[in-house]
Simulated assay, not measured.
Amino acid sequence: MFPGISSRSIQTARLEIAYLQAGTGNIPLVLIHGNCSSSLFFQSFMQALSATGRYIIYAPDMRGYGESAGAPVDATRGLRDFSDDIQAFVQALGLPPFHLFGWSLGGNVVMQYAQDYPGTLRSLTLQAPGSPFGFGGTRDVQGTPTWPDYAGSGGGTANPEFVRRLAQGDRSDDAFSPRATMNTFYFKPPFRVSPELEELYVSALLRMKVDPGNYPGDTESSEHWPNVAPGKLGVNNALSPRYLNQASFAHCSAKPPVLWIHGADDQIVSDTSMFDFGYLGQLGAVPGWPGAEIYPAQPMKAQIRYVLEAYKANGGAYSEVMLAECGHSPHIEKQDEVVGLFTAFVDTH
């Protein structure tokens, strides 16, 4: 652990959750990591936050990640398993209303939490969140399904070679390895963390529970291109628009102020995502693409903005900050800027 950060675990009403804790202040911050990562990706960020002396910071590992239990994810509930886990975690800690920060998948999880547990948040920060209409399988800003069975989303869309290398504990720099995937897509090349941090992050990736109940999930075949449809278990299926539609976020009964931070060069959550079958088909990377009229690229950032504008129209407030020369991990790539933006936002609320 980095100096000033302790590694802990707590038995909640749902499962045993491992978490990192830092800071001696009295303003609680809870940080939720993304897919294919863990709380370890927050250590440097937590150090910087705790240096202010104002905050006490908690970063749990979600189920199936890091040191937390690998309980199966019921994808038919969307992200509610994760949302309920956060609620059980903060209840076990006895936290008062707190500030919630979610990165990538964690951004969608915290949006779900805000809907499921209104009145418990002081503010909500979304860093490089996924689309409120799930990952893959939608065609416009309103989240219209591309196919009736949501083909092109879910557990079957994960690169099988990446999944194989994860399961084998591959620490190489070969194509499709966890290390190469992280350095190519989590960050905007040529950005690279220190060798020590890189080893820490690779270790975090390799701690993921790789099985049909967790990552990436089970899959079903489809008659529609690209011939894979979502199953019912695991995190990638929970992110499928078959089960995840967060348009109702715009109508939360309690509307905490929202800060949306994202990188201008994000290759994962993008209107031209390198992980979206619609865009990959357009590039010729996946054979048989039926064309943009039938299967366009998913406009992920436009969908986020669409839902946040509806949130604003219904009485909420949000601000958007796009960071130049930055990929999918602003708190790592642009740590000083994100610390400044986040603390200014938190301190205002």
Results as ranks from 00 to 15, higher is better:
151 A>Y: 03
168 Q>S: 15
146 T>I: 14
136 G>M: 04
189 P>E: 01
143 G>E: 13
159 N>P: 09
133 F>D: 04
158 A>F: 08
185 F>N: 09
133 F>N: 07
168 Q>M: 14
155 G>L: 03
186 Y>P: 02
177 S>I: 01
168 Q>L: 15
141 V>M: 13
133 F>P: 06
166 L>E: 05
137 G>Y: 06
160 P>W: 00
171 R>D: 02
176 F>I: 04
160 P>E: 03
181 T>Y: 10
149 D>H: 03
141 V>S: 04
178 P>D: 01
136 G>V: 02
188 K>F: 05
149 D>N: 00
162 F>P: 09
172 S>I: 06
153 S>F: 03
173 D>H: 08
173 D>I: 08
174 D>C: 09
158 A>D: 08
179 R>Y: 00
179 R>N: 01
176 F>M: 07
148 P>T: 09
165 R>K: 15
189 P>F: 06
142 Q>M: 14
135 F>M: 09
164 R>F: 10
135 F>S: 10
186 Y>W: 09
178 P>E: 04
181 T>E: 11
157 T>H: 02
142 Q>Y: 10
187 F>A: 00
136 G>K: 01
141 V>F: 13
171 R>I: 08
174 D>Q: 15
175 A>T: 14
147 W>H: 15
164 R>K: 15
137 G>A: 11
174 D>G: 14
183 N>Y: 08
145 P>W: 07
140 D>N: 13
173 D>F: 13
184 T>S: 15
150 Y>K: 10
182 M>E: 00
188 K>Y: 10
185 F>E: 00
163 V>Y: 01
189 P>C: 04
165 R>M: 15
187 F>N: 00
155 G>D: 03
181 T>A: 13
148 P>L: 06
139 R>Y: 05
142 Q>G: 09
160 P>Q: 00
148 P>R: 04
158 A>N: 07
182 M>K: 02
186 Y>E: 02
180 A>E: 12
157 T>N: 00
136 G>E: 04
182 M>C: 05
177 S>H: 04
146 T>D: 04
140 D>T: 02
169 G>S: 05
190 P>L: 06
191 F>D: 01
151 A>Q: 10
166 L>Q: 01
